[in-house]
């Protein structure tokens, strides 16, 4: 029954909290761990996702644990925790920020990688990738393709150029046509 999960308190640090403060979420340190966020979270009620605990770990500087936590991806960004927090902490935005750090560190759901690749390839996260969708449009009296990047290749190239500039393609390991 050995369970050596004691946390080495010497590893506690302010680095992750500092990063969050620098990104504009400086209220994060005001958290008093009241638990309103977890109590209100719709995802938390049916999964192991614990908003408050995640923020606590972030404030303790347990970077690896936070960024690799799969429950980080169970938040629907509904924003209710942010509305109800008595310290007015931008919790949802902070979770989104932690997700950025997680992706940067290499933690990304394959499904999300897939969506990102579609985005790079077509300019849409949910593109017309089957003629049944364009046929559906036509049956409603609409042109088969909408006036988005689907109709304007130059526009798509602009989007792709921007994605290259921000390094998005490298971030999601897009290696050309897949």
């Amino acid at each position: 029954m050995l369970d050596r999960r004691i946390i080495d308190g010497n590893k506690f640090n302010q680095k992750l909290a500092d990063e969050m403060a620098e990104a504009g979420y400086d209220r994060i340190r005001a958290c008093i761990q009241c638990g309103t966020c977890t109590a209100t979270c719709p995802a938390g009620r049916r999964t192991a996702y614990r908003t408050r605990q995640l923020i606590r770990k972030a404030l303790l500087g347990l970077r690896e644990e936070v960024l690799s936590d799969p429950t980080l991806w169970l938040c629907t960004t509904c924003g209710t925790c942010q509305e109800r927090c008595p310290r007015k902490i931008e919790i949802t935005d902070a979770i989104t920020f932690l997700r950025n750090l997680a992706v940067e560190a290499g933690y990304m759901r394959p499904e999300h990688r897939g969506v990102s690749h579609k985005f790079i390839k077509t300019g849409h996260a949910v593109p017309i990738d089957d003629e049944k969708w364009s046929k559906l449009r036509e049956s409603l009296g609409l042109p088969p393709l909408p006036p988005t990047v689907h109709c304007y290749p130059k526009a798509l190239r602009e989007v792709q150029k921007l994605l290259k500039k921000t390094g998005f393609d490298k971030l999601v390991e897009y290696k050309g046509d897949d």
């Binding site: 989104t96 997700r99 950025n100 992706v103 999300h112 969506v115 985005f119 849409h124 990047v149």
Partner: peptide, 24 residues
């Protein structure tokens, strides 16, 4: 809005990289 793309989706793209989200 000719040539508009994905907004980009707040729950996915913004969760991956804020700068990319901002650019698009």
């Amino acid at each position: 809005m000719k040539g508009a793309s994905c907004c980009p989706a707040p729950g996915v793209i913004r969760s991956f990289d804020n700068e990319t989200w901002l650019a698009i």
